[in-house]
Design a protein around this nucleic acid. Structure first.
Lengths: 199, 199
DNA sequence: GGTAAAATACTCAAAAACAGGTATTGATTC
DNA sequence: GAATCAATACCTGTTTTTGAGTATTTTACC
């Protein structure tokens, strides 16, 4: 029997998912955890073939667990179940040997199918091009511009950003002006609010 | 039998939740929807006693559905199942006659209990003070200051805020400085990021 | 009635952001 | 090879924000 550990801080989701998976008699749930810390602990005492891993936790990120598993060389196969397709995280996950990156907007049947694929050794990555396909405002921004939005969002001034990226203050301000123009916004407040949602 | 409609764009969650609810033979799931539009459509053709409503949808917000139900005067009881305690949304939900606002970080048993309470006419609102219990920075700000943060967050300049609140530009700027000092921040970007999370 | 906090308004000054330009380089694409 | 775009950098302004003060009035509470 394929055993699974479910790590998700949303207890309702974790529990009802466990029920669903056991119902089909294809998997057995060996453990349910709700924090990064307890997941890592459970991994060291419990054997399982697949770890169903959420991205968001109160005490950290799912990718931290993946990093731990990777470094420790544990034989468990990781399936990340995330809310959205977050490209940088997906790339990072692939680097860390994660076997699948699925979004929660997926039917139970599709999840079961994907897990069977993972179990038989395949990788299942739902890259945005294949899954959603909706053109977003984010794509209006170049990678560099997106990077700068992230730093602005953290509260850094143009000067601080320039220092951090080894650029001229002028360059950063040009980028910021281009960003505002592209997104049709007029100040930092609007940009940060937007970034909190979409970036 | 208490019938339920589940509206959640995360199909896995909606489906496994449905399974869990029907397992206990206390509820019957009359419908599952994944968008605001299809939820509103279903509400008009299907009778149910409780609507389990997510907050986030690809085509809108759960609160939009609540608004529709409120205006149309439908007799269905709404239970919002959100990711986090978002105070403004909770207040808005209460205004719209929503019966419960629960966070997903809740066990299945607690959810069932809360739904039983709602079914027997009670309201279940998990206000942050009761659930988390951590003294928040929000309380450092006076009502007027909180109001101004909301406007800053929307991208208004001090002048625009002054015009909207019939105040002197000086006053708004004083408030803004006091806000930043109280929260120990140094610019608007940090403030907006904070407001997105906590206000 | 007294006190404390909140809300209001002002001044002066520096820092940061915003708006409109221009220009060079490198990479990509047609 | 030309054209386009991304990334870099600079200049000249204006507007907005932030910092550090002071001061009056209103509100709330004991």
């Amino acid at each position: 029997m394929n055993t699974i550990i479910i790590a998700d801080d949303h207890k309702i989701f974790a529990e009802s998912l466990a029920g669903m998976l056991e119902e089909n008699n294809l998997f057995k749930v060996a453990g349910i955890t709700h924090t990064v810390a307890s997941t890592i602990e459970t991994l060291q005492t419990t054997k399982a073939s697949i770890l169903l891993l959420d991205y968001h936790f109160p005490d950290g990120k799912g990718i931290d667990v993946a990093e731990f598993v990777h470094k420790a060389g544990l034989p468990i196969k990781i399936v990340i179940l995330s809310m959205e397709n977050d490209l940088p995280t997906m790339r990072q996950a692939e680097q860390l040997g994660v076997r699948a990156y699925l979004i929660k907007n997926l039917s139970s049947a599709e999840l079961l199918e994907a897990m069977q694929q993972v179990f038989s050794g395949e990788k299942v990555f739902m890259w945005p091009e294949q899954s959603a396909g909706q053109a977003t405002e984010v794509q209006l921004l170049s990678p560099r511009e997106q990077e700068i939005v992230q730093l602005v969002r953290q509260g850094l001034t143009s000067q601080e950003i320039a220092a951090q990226l080894f650029l001229s203050n002028y360059t950063v301000e040009t980028h910021r002006r281009n960003i505002l123009r592209k997104l049709n916004m007029k100040n930092t407040a609007m940009l940060v609010q937007w970034a909190e949602k979409f970036l």
